[in-house]
């Protein structure tokens, strides 16, 4: 049930909820309502799937949490910050705490796997030695240590996916957002990625995984919310 909450009433204090959407509506400039009156509460350390068919608004939901898209109506609180009208400066802080894995990986083709991961560390001004070391460990954690100097173009879809995951995790984020992480993978590789996510979850990271693959939540044994044409459907 949607709760009516005024702007002022939204509590931004740190509590057990790490992501809170209050009646969020997102309307794109073309007039498309990608999300309509969506209210979701995500617990710290929760592993939650967002399912729904293509065009349901899953990607949009992740994008507003990362501050890539602005909320049109409603309120959004992430890790105690009201992101609804967050200034750009604080947004960078939020993003440093939030790893993301987009569907199209977003890897740079003119950099090696290691350099792609290193990017997320360099922006924090860490010394080059530490950057290399941490990037290496992150790649090793996803089983790509020996491919660290490869260009993403020379890697398979699954390997690119794992480089993206390594980059998302290298800063030990509080939250990991993943958009169709198995979209381009066969069943075997999908399960591998899911096992990886379960492991990450074990370490206390909050995971939000958007997928149109019905079998993933069951495989992981985790709960899910279902979006249908931008609206929250009854939990399936």
């Amino acid at each position: 049930m949607p709760h009516e909450i005024s702007n002022m009433a939204v509590s931004t204090e740190v509590n057990s909820k790490i992501i809170q959407l209050f009646n969020v509506t997102k309307t794109y400039s073309g007039g498309v309502a990608a999300l309509e009156d969506v209210s979701v509460q995500v617990e710290r350390g929760e592993f939650l799937f967002i399912s729904g068919s293509s065009g349901a608004g899953k990607t949009t939901l992740l994008k507003i949490i990362l501050g890539v898209e602005r909320v049109t109506q409603g309120q959004l609180v992430v890790n105690g910050r009201n992101v609804t009208r967050i200034p750009r400066r604080e947004l960078t802080q939020l993003r440093k705490e939030t790893g993301f894995v987009f569907q199209d990986f977003k890897l740079l083709e003119n950099r090696s796997a290691l350099e792609n991961v290193a990017l997320a560390l360099q922006i924090r001004g860490l010394p080059p030695g530490e950057v290399r070391q941490r990037a290496y460990h992150a790649l090793r954690a996803v089983g790509l240590a020996d491919k660290r100097d490869q260009n993403p173009l020379c890697l398979s879809g699954g390997e690119q996916q794992r480089v993206a995951i390594a980059r998302a995790l290298v800063n030990n984020p509080l939250i990991l957002l993943a958009d169709e992480p198995t979209g381009n993978l066969d069943a075997g590789l999908s399960r591998e990625i899911m096992d990886q996510f379960l492991e990450i979850h074990e370490r206390g990271t909050t995971l939000l995984v958007a997928t149109h693959n019905e079998s993933l939540p069951a495989y992981c044994g985790k709960s899910r919310i279902v979006l249908d044409q931008g609206r929250l459907a009854k939990d399936g």
């Binding site: 990362l66 890539v68 750009r88 400066r89 960078t92 802080q93 939020l94 993003r95 440093k96 705490e97 939030t98 993301f100 987009f102 977003k106 740079l108 990017l119 997320a120 922006i123 980059r167 800063n171």
Partner: peptide, 16 residues
């Protein structure tokens, strides 16, 4: 453009 987008997503400041 791509690199800039990624830098923004991983939390780089505009000045970075």
């Amino acid at each position: 453009k791509e690199e800039i987008e990624i830098l923004r997503l991983v939390g780089a400041t505009e000045w970075y």
